[in-house]
Structures are given as C-alpha cells and as structure tokens.
C-alpha cells in the first residue's frame, strides 16, 4: 500500500514536470512564431512623415479657419474665451470705424496658448460661426516656451462680416 502511494507520488512528480514543460513550450511557440514570421507593427517615424496621415478629427492644434481671401469667421463673441476651462484663449478686440460711420468691435489678435491647452475641444463645439478647427499638426516640440503662444489670425486678415460690409 505504501509502495503504491510512493509510486503514485512519483507519477505525479513526473506528470507535473511534463505539464509544466508543455506549458512553457506553448508559450515559446507564440514568441517563436513571431520570430519566424515577423509582423512588425512599429513605424520608422521621422522617415515616414510623408505617408503619415492623421485621422480627420485628430486634435493637433487649434486654428482659426481662413478662406482664400484671408477672411476668418470670428465675430468676437468671446464665447470660446469664456468656455475654455484653462484660459488658453485670449480674444483681443479693437474698435474700428465702419463704412456707416458707427464704431464696430472687430478681432485684433486671437491668442492661443498651446502650452495651457488640454485639447478638450469645447472651444470648437461652442463656436456658432464654426470659426475654429483643430489642425493635424502634432509636432509641437520647441526649445522656448514662448513659442507655444500663437496668434491664430493671420496678418492682414479680416472677418467675413467686415469684408461684406465694406
């Protein structure tokens, strides 16, 4: 009887070894399989810049949409500035004399602090004029923090409303 138990124990001992080794081999088959049939998923990044295309909705950086005549759609309602959770947007307006002689508020500088932006997208979604958009640009690294503060309205641009009145 005791002998039988011993035999059984020896049997379990070797069975344990066998099942252990089998499980190890199963794991090695996975890694070995990838070694034999390489399926590289990584990309060579700076080299593939040309083919690299971000998704349409990708939130790279905020831009003020300009058309071909260098017109933007901002009418200085300041909603984006108020709704921005972390104060990344500064809309600076100026007063100009309109064609009808009344003074109007138009956009002077649209300042965007990329260094403070959390890309929540609230500014784009609250803008009734659809003046704002996120661009695909994602290479933001610079050596000077002040370079992250950007003016979004292009030099010499005017709003479409302004253009229509003239």
């Amino acid at each position: 009887m005791a002998l039988l138990t011993t035999f059984r124990e020896v049997g379990t001992y070797f069975r344990e070894i066998y099942s252990g080794v089998a499980s190890l081999v199963r794991g090695m088959r996975v890694t070995g399989g990838y070694f034999v049939r390489p399926q590289t998923v990584t990309q060579r990044y700076p080299e593939n810049r040309k083919e690299l295309k971000m998704f349409d909705n990708f939130k790279g950086e905020l831009i003020l949409v300009h058309d071909e005549q260098n017109h933007h759609k901002c009418n200085v309602c300041n909603t984006c500035m108020r709704k921005c959770p972390n104060g990344s947007i500064e809309v600076i307006s100026k007063k100009i004399e309109g064609a009808d002689g009344r003074s109007k508020k138009v956009l002077d500088k649209y300042i965007y602090h990329l260094d403070m932006c959390t890309f929540c997208g609230i500014c784009v979604s609250v803008c009734d004029e659809h003046a704002l958009k996120f661009d695909q640009e994602f290479e933001h690294a610079v050596f000077d923090r002040s370079k992250l503060v950007k003016q979004l309205n292009l030099p010499g641009s005017i709003s479409q409303k302004e253009a229509n009145n003239e």
Binding site: T31, G32, Y34, F35, P38, Q39, T40, V41, R44
Partner: peptide, 13 residues
C-alpha cells in the same frame, strides 16, 4: 534584434 522580432518591433535601426 531577436527580442524586437519576437515582440513585433524593429529593434535598433
């Protein structure tokens, strides 16, 4: 290189 290939990477290049 070996581990990169096993892990679907390129390794040093």
């Amino acid at each position: 290189k070996v581990c990169a290939q096993m892990q679907n990477r390129m390794g040093p290049n």
